[in-house]
Structures are given as C-alpha cells and as structure tokens.
C-alpha cells in the first residue's frame, strides 16, 4: 500500500509536473537544492496536518462556508511552520522570504483538502498528505537541482564540475520557466511512450 501510494504521489499524480498545482513556490524557491528541499518539507508538514484536521471536522463544516474554514485551518499550520523556521533556521527564512506565509494560499493544499480530505477518513488523508507532499518535495528538489547546477555549477552549495562556466540565467526568473517547461515536456514524452506500449 505504501509503495503504490508513493508511486501515485511521486509519479502518476505528481503535483507539479502532472497536476500543475503549486506552481508559484516551485518556480520561485527552486534556485538551490537547500531551498527546494526546505520549502518542500514545509509544504508537506502543512499538507499532512491540514488534511488530518479537515477530514476530522468534515462532518461539522457546512458546505457553504467550507472554503473559509479550510483557509483558516491551512493558514494556522502555515503560521506554525513559519514561526518554527524563523526560530530554528533563520537562514532558510531569509532565503524563502514571503513564500513561507504564502504556503497558506498554495493551490496544491486547497486541491487536496477539497478533493481528498473532505471525503475520506483522517488516516487515509494523512497518508495522502504525506505522499503528495513528498511528490512535491521530490519534483521541487529535481527542479532546483537542475537550476542550481546549470546556473551556479553547484549542488547543495558544493562545486560540481571544475572549469565549467555556469549560466546565471538559470538562477534568474526566465531560467525557472525554461527548466520547468522542459522537465514537464520530458514527463509528457515518457508518459506518451508508456501509453503507446
């Protein structure tokens, strides 16, 4: 069960590359692997916790006001992780900047709350949150790895290839768009090959 769930989160229903959810943070913070991993884990935390709370309270939340209720629950966990990062990892806080509070309006978390947590029991929702969060983290780390290598010739702040002149454009805004475009294109290509078989 764990393996199929992980496969679903990371490959068949990958949040960024297949579902195209949560694009803003995935482009903005994917300038280095450290940032990407930090952001991914923060999103995973918020996603798993809010999924559990929403699925516990799904019977009490009236359908008409469910969106504001979801927002408050998600924003609460976002504030918790924001304060934790600020206190324990000031370096990460200064790097990610306003994108930590903006986890509260991440469409990935909304989509999971609406499509999954409000219909399933807490345990399954927790698993879904963790799996989807891990899928987000993996693809974010992949994107940031590509960008950090091409743009700064580094991975996890370490030099990779000596005598390779990095292309700074990949760390700047346009590079983010190009990298995600080609990674998505490759994912589509692999999928179409599989379907053809």
């Amino acid at each position: 069960m764990i393996v199929t769930n992980l496969k679903r989160g990371i490959i068949t229903e990958n949040p960024i590359l297949i579902l195209a959810l949560g694009l803003c943070p995935s482009l903005a913070v994917s300038t280095s692997v450290k940032n990407g991993l930090g952001m991914g884990l923060a999103v995973t935390f918020v996603l798993a916790c809010s999924n559990v709370i929403i699925s516990i309270f799904k019977g009490w939340i009236p359908g008409k006001v469910r969106i504001p209720c979801f927002i408050v629950i998600i924003a609460t966990f976002t504030s918790i992780i924001h304060l934790l990062i600020k206190a324990n990892m000031p370096f990460l806080d200064s790097q990610l900047g306003i994108f930590i509070p903006l986890i509260a309006v991440n469409c990935l978390i909304f989509a999971r709350a609406e499509a999954f947590a409000s219909k399933n029991n807490p345990v399954v929702s927790f698993v879904d949150g963790v799996v989807m969060g891990l899928g987000f983290t993996v693809s974010l780390s992949l994107l940031s790895g590509i960008r950090e290598f091409l743009g700064a010739n580094k991975l996890w702040d370490l030099l990779v290839v000596p005598n390779f002149k990095p292309m700074t454009i990949f760390i700047l805004a346009p590079g983010g768009f190009f990298v995600i475009a080609f990674v998505m294109g490759i994912a589509n290509w692999i999928r179409s090959k599989k379907e053809a078989k």
């Binding site: 195209a20 768009f177 190009f178 475009a181 080609f182 998505m184 589509n188 290509w189």
Partner: peptide, 14 residues
C-alpha cells in the same frame, strides 16, 4: 506534442 499546452506556455513566459 510533448510540449503542447502548459510546457510551451512556460517557454513563452520564460
């Protein structure tokens, strides 16, 4: 075909 839709929009945005 693989770039159709979202990916080509990303390239344009880039």
């Amino acid at each position: 075909k693989s770039l159709d839709g979202l990916p080509i929009s990303f390239i344009t945005a880039g």
